[in-house]
């Protein structure tokens, strides 16, 4: 499903039906996902279409650039240790039309559950997209239309044990890579004294042959101080 396509084309996967039909000089875009329908007329000579996973923060409404993954089982890290775990995150699918070397986002859809949560206190905390993830020690098999995998390298820089129950990511730093079977990101979490965590993304794929997704958040970035997230309200 992910990758470049030439119109006219019809793509059907799980509960998603996407079609680009030729109508005279234009293209007719139709999409059905979870009972939601979208129809658009595209006045273009281009037939090049890109479908790729994007930052999972646009649905049901763009309200926050933060994604909080709640770990279904807490992870306890020993002092001065660096360990790797794999988590899953929800996928949103972006449909793009490409013409004259310029891409335009046509539509965004998702099959993943939508939920928001608050990280921190009502005063000063941040609203985050919420997703509950299992913790895996190796790359888990997931449905790439619904879930992606984030490889998280945890470094405990302190001389104390720390328990991690949640991880918050900043969409402005997300680097999503994909192939036909896997959607993945790579990130690091450094734990500092006082139980403060710093989350940052690596701009490199999990496998060499993976393609990089178009970053909607980075493309719109005008004035962003940082792409990291500092977890100061608890791990």
């Amino acid at each position: 499903m992910f990758g470049f396509h030439e119109a006219p084309v019809t793509i059907e996967k799980d509960d998603i039906l996407i079609s680009f039909e030729k109508k005279g000089d234009s293209l007719l875009y139709k999409r059905t996902c979870n009972g939601e329908n979208v129809n658009k007329i595209l006045l273009t000579e281009s037939k090049r279409i890109l479908i790729n996973p994007i930052e999972p923060l646009h649905k049901p409404k763009e309200m926050t650039p933060y994604l909080l993954l709640e770990l279904k089982r807490p992870v306890v890290v020993e002092p001065k240790a660096t360990k790797k775990i794999f988590l899953t995150f929800p996928i949103e699918i972006g449909i793009f039309i490409i013409g004259r070397e310029e891409s335009k986002s046509l539509d965004i859809m998702t099959l993943a559950k939508q939920k928001l949560t608050l990280y921190g206190e009502v005063r000063g905390g941040v609203i985050c997209k919420h997703y509950a993830s299992d913790v895996h020690s190796s790359l888990p098999a997931v449905d790439p239309v619904r879930e992606g995998v984030v490889e998280l390298t945890i470094s405990n820089t302190t001389a104390r044990w720390h328990e991690i129950t949640q991880v918050v990511f900043n969409a402005y730093g997300m680097k999503i890579y994909y192939n036909e079977n896997t959607v993945a990101m790579r990130a690091s979490m450094r734990i500092y004294t006082g139980g403060i965590g710093e989350i940052e993304f690596y701009d490199s794929p999990l496998y060499k042959e993976m393609s990089k997704s178009i970053e909607l958040y980075t493309a719109r970035r005008i004035k962003v101080a940082t792409t990291k997230f500092i977890m100061e309200w608890g791990l």
Partner: peptide, 8 residues
Amino acid sequence: HPITLKNP
């Protein structure tokens, strides 16, 4: 409901 918060 997708907008209601899980926490609090």
